[in-house]
Computed example of a mutant assay.
Amino acid sequence: MPVLEYFSFNDLWSPLILAGMLLCMAGYFVLIGPLASRFPGNGNVPVWRKLLFVAGLTALYLAQGGPLSLLGHLMFSFHMISMALSYLIAVPLLMLGLPDFLWRSLLRRNPLHRLSFLAQPIVAALLFNGLFSLYHIPAIHDYVMVHFTIHRLYYGVLFVTAALMWWTLISPLPERKSVGGLGKLGYIFLNMVLLTPACGLIIFAPNPLYATYTDPNIWARAMGYCVSTSPGALLQSFGGPAFFGALSPKVDQQVGGIAMKFIQEIIFASMLAYVFYHWYKKENGQDDAEASKVSSDGGTVL
């Protein structure tokens, strides 16, 4: 994109975050490779799991450290795409990429086991969607964006609560699956409904809501945490976020809300179809098995 030419390589690619992601990737391959024998029940990790984990880390890096992160400070629409990529795409990919023996080891050593109730479906759904919606209240969003430590802490909490929310749908451990097909269908609908008010507020607001994308001074402070240029120099060079905006703040905001809801709908609709198919197949399989048993016992099958 043309706007990216104004920023340095370090601003665009965040080498420290990239190094952290590469260390995480290296640690993953060491754990499932040379150190796998230290974990009970270890086995060969299929290639598809490895690819999912790498894809999840890549998505997380692009959203939180790559150009998309910088663009998210320039335009609200990119901010929402970054949020969707971080919590609706990267999190489940990372979770699916971890093999069973690593999950069992993590849960066995979990120092926060007393907080396991947070993974209960209703609680997890309310936590993630509630914190996500709370974050997009204008005053809270603008405050978080200009306070770096709180920003990182909030994003970390969102990551954890996103994992708790996804656990009900993609738990890789058979012994931990406590929700049946119908329950998962209802859970998916619940998550789709809970995020709607926040997206609706963003889409249908009569005016731009976020000073981060309209007030040059607040924008410069927020940008100061993701680029090497000082806020004063940013204001002198660009004047404010309007310099980069191909869309008006209101339209940009609407596009962001629509993008977030659209991505969520696509992902959860796909999950809905997957869960329904397997639930229906299982129910019919059980019915067929029972019918075959009656027939073999001399009964009549209508």
Results as ranks from 00 to 15, higher is better:
Tyr155Asn: 13
Trp48Glu: 10
Gly298Pro: 05
Gly183Tyr: 09
Ile137His: 04
Phe78Thr: 13
Phe117Trp: 04
Leu52Ile: 06
Arg108Lys: 11
Gly232His: 09
Leu16Asp: 04
Trp13Gly: 03
Pro231Met: 04
Ala291Ile: 02
Leu85Lys: 07
Leu35Val: 11
Ala289Ser: 10
Met80Cys: 14
Ala273Trp: 12
Phe204Arg: 01
Ser178Met: 11
Val227Glu: 00
Lys250Gln: 06
Ser116Gly: 10
Val157Met: 05
Ser8Ile: 02
Val251Arg: 08
Pro231Phe: 05
Pro111Thr: 05
Ala36Ser: 09
Leu164Ile: 13
Val123Met: 02
Gly224Thr: 09
Arg38Gln: 13
Tyr187Ser: 14
Leu153Lys: 14
Thr58Gln: 14
Met80His: 09
Gly56Ala: 14
Leu209Tyr: 01
Ala246Ser: 15
Ala59Arg: 09
Val144Ile: 13
Gly240Asn: 03
Ala119Cys: 13
Thr161Ile: 06
Pro92Thr: 08
Asn10Gln: 06
Leu190Thr: 11
Met25Asp: 15
Phe148Gln: 13
Asn44Gly: 15
Ser171Thr: 11
Trp219Arg: 01
Met25Pro: 15
Tyr87Val: 06
Phe132Gln: 00
Ser133Leu: 01
Met192Ile: 05
Phe268Gly: 10
Thr212Tyr: 09
His73Gln: 15
Leu169Ile: 12
Asn129Arg: 02
Gly181Met: 04
Ala139Leu: 05
Leu134Cys: 03
Ala211Trp: 05
Val301Asp: 00
Pro249Phe: 01
Pro174Phe: 00
Ala125Leu: 03
Ile267Cys: 03
Leu234Asn: 10
Leu57Cys: 15
Ser295Gln: 07
Arg109Val: 10
Gly200Phe: 02
Thr149Asp: 15
Leu52Gln: 04
Leu118Thr: 09
Gly130Cys: 00
Glu283Lys: 09
Tyr213Met: 10
Ala198Lys: 01
Leu302Asp: 07
Leu131Trp: 00
Ser86His: 02
Met192Gln: 04
Pro15His: 08
Val193Arg: 01
Leu272Ser: 10
Leu302Cys: 08
Asn284Ala: 09
Ala19Cys: 11
Tyr135Arg: 03
Leu62Ser: 08
Asn44Met: 15
Ile150Thr: 15
Trp167His: 13
Leu107Arg: 08
Val294Tyr: 03
Thr214Glu: 00
Leu94Glu: 08
His278Lys: 06
Met80Ser: 12
His278Ser: 06
Ser237Pro: 10
Ala205Ser: 01
Ala124Thr: 10
Ala291Arg: 01
Gly180Ala: 07
Gly181His: 02
Ala59Asn: 07
Val227Asn: 00
Ile81Asp: 11
Pro174Asn: 00
Pro249Cys: 02
Arg114Tyr: 07
Val54Met: 14
Phe268Trp: 11
Gly56Leu: 14
Asn217Gly: 11
Phe238Trp: 05
Leu74Tyr: 12
Leu57Gln: 15
Pro34Glu: 03
Met83Gly: 12
Ala291Pro: 01
Pro216Glu: 08
